[in-house]
Design a binder for these strands. Structure first.
Length: 152
DNA sequence: GCCAACGTTGGC
DNA sequence: GCCAACGTTGGC
């Protein structure tokens, strides 16, 4: 099993939204590297650090898991969607998504600042300057260290 | 295939 | 709202 970090702006879709919905599809990823992670590597049951970006403060808000493996992101060929992409079609979907299921909302969000201060996480991707990839692989070591922070 | 211009992300 | 760091686009 693998571990992931997925970014979302809470104003658009938050851990509280996922908690209410139980599961949802992860639409709108329009970056090839992030898509490839979903398409090629995300498997049922993989655990996801649910990251709130563009928030005050930004940080990890909870846990989710992959509940459906990659399939075409239909918002790409929906002209009314803000994620519409003229390059995509039903025949050539271009963009993919997975479904994610709610696991847990942390009692307190773990701010990015706290992640930075934990020496065990110094090599974690989300810490790195200029890192804007919206879906990132997370090592088991880093994942466990984050869970410990969440339980404190 | 290069690269300048442009658009986006996301912390601050 | 600013802007640095990226990613994408399109002219050549």
């Amino acid at each position: 099993m693998r571990y992931w970090l997925m970014k979302t702006e809470p104003e658009v879709f938050s851990i509280q939204d996922l908690k209410k919905m139980k599961t949802n599809h992860w639409d709108g990823v329009r970056n090839y590297q992030a898509r490839n992670f979903m398409r090629d590597q995300m498997k049922m049951g993989d655990l996801i650090l649910f990251y709130h970006s563009n928030a005050t403060p930004p940080g990890i808000a909870g846990l989710a898991k992959v509940s459906k493996e990659a399939y075409p992101d239909f918002t790409a060929w929906d002209k009314k969607s803000e994620y519409f992409d003229p390059k995509a079609s039903k025949e050539k979907p271009t963009w993919m998504m997975v479904d994610v299921q709610f696991v847990e909302e942390f009692k307190q969000l773990i701010p990015l600042e706290s992640l930075r201060m934990n020496p065990q996480l110094k090599d974690m991707l989300v810490i790195k300057k200029g890192m804007r990839l919206s879906i990132q692989p997370v090592s088991q070591t880093h994942f466990n260290a984050v869970l410990i922070m969440a339980s404190l």
